[in-house]
């Protein structure tokens, strides 16, 4: 029991550290990638290839002056970014980061909490994500912030539906809500082969849920100044910006887990390696997949222009939702016939 608790605590610490580290360096990669796409260098002054840039940015955010509007609701103004950060970090608890690892005769799963409702848990946490933004936007007592918050929340509520329906077809196929079980079933064939449409819908919705371009209307500079975080400065602003990158990392992890076989690596079992090596290689391979999707997120951002608000709603309600329903029906028919 004690060994189990220690292992889980260490695992939680590692995952927390990794999420923060990856989110930190994703900011640098984003700027470098934007530079690459726009045919320029990107940040390259701090350290070799700008490797210290995130550290400088972080230090700057920490030491900047803390400013709070006079008319703000003090408690909620602080609660907003904290809640956003908390919600962003909570989801990683149910993602299976690897297979089983054997330490001194004990077999440990590289998943912090395995339950029979993993996917629903992710949904519950995602639906809580709206509050951080809404509370922050409202508590600032600023018209632009409030409009940004209202936009963000209506966008997130609208796209949650299509997202849930697209996953429902995957759940129907797997017959389970447990993520580790879903990954286990993908050992021979990844889900993307059966559910390409669900993947496309899910990915589009993930872009909207993380408020990334082309759906970054909540912080549309041209119309809303900074959107819901207009009145925020210093590390509170840092939390909002940072949680976007953590969300991106977690969404990529969920996409890899649901559609791309999670920690499964093709032909790994033919090599005859020991269990621990296979597990660690699998985890490394999962991270390769995650990094690929993070890059895809960035690629989309620097390629596509921003949607207009009515277009966004139209896409969500009249395209993605019916498509997801159709996919659900087709999945059901195929399951009955096969």
């Amino acid at each position: 029991m004690i060994v189990f608790l220690i292992f889980k605590t260490v695992l939680i610490a590692i995952i927390l550290g990794l999420s923060l580290l990856i989110a930190m360096y994703a900011t640098l990669v984003e700027r470098k990638f934007a530079g690459f796409i726009q045919d320029r260098y990107g940040p390259d002054r701090a350290g070799i290839w700008g490797i210290l840039q995130p550290v400088c940015d972080g230090a700057k955010l920490f030491f900047k002056e803390e400013y709070m509007p006079n008319t703000a609701d003090k408690a909620l103004y602080i609660l907003g970014p904290s809640l956003t950060m908390l919600v962003a970090l909570l989801t990683s608890a149910v993602i299976p980061w690897g297979g089983n690892i054997a330490i001194g005769g004990n077999n440990f799963s590289l998943q912090v909490a395995s339950s029979s409702i993993d996917i629903l848990y992710i949904f519950a946490i995602t639906s809580m994500g709206v509050y951080g933004i809404m509370i922050g936007g409202w508590a600032s007592n600023n018209k632009f912030a409030l409009l940004g918050a209202v936009r963000a929340s209506s966008q997130m509520i609208s796209y949650e539906l299509a997202m849930g329906l697209s996953i429902a077809s995957v759940i129907m196929m797997s017959g389970t809500l447990s993520l580790s079980e879903i990954v286990h079933q993908q050992e021979s064939m990844w889900n993307i082969a059966y559910q390409p449409l669900a993947f496309i819908i899910f990915f589009t919705c993930a872009l909207a849920e993380t408020n990334r371009a082309p759906f970054d209307l909540p912080e549309c500079e041209g119309e809303l100044v900074g959107g819901y975080h207009t009145e925020y400065s210093s590390m509170k602003l840092g939390f909002y910006l940072f949680s976007e990158y953590i969300n991106m990392f977690i969404s990529s992890a969920v996409i890899s887990t649901l559609f791309f076989g999670g920690y499964h690596m093709p032909f790994i079992n033919d090599l005859g390696l020991s269990q621990n090596v296979v597990t660690l290689l699998g985890t490394a391979f999962l991270f390769v997949k995650i990094f690929f999707f993070i890059l895809l997120f960035m690629w989309v951002r620097w390629t596509l222009p921003r949607f207009r608000y009515d277009q966004l709603m139209k896409l969500g309600w009249t395209m993605l939702l019916p498509l997801a329903l159709l996919n659900l029906v087709i999945t059901g028919i195929v399951m009955l016939l096969v």
Binding site: L120, Y121, S127, V130, Y131, M134, W138, L146
Partner: peptide
């Protein structure tokens, strides 16, 4: 989980929306 998704995640968001 459904309690959180439906009540805290959906209905209360709409209430918050209206109040704001």
């Amino acid at each position: 989980v459904v309690h959180i998704i439906v009540y805290a995640g959906a209905i209360m968001v709409l209430f918050l929306f209206t109040l704001m």
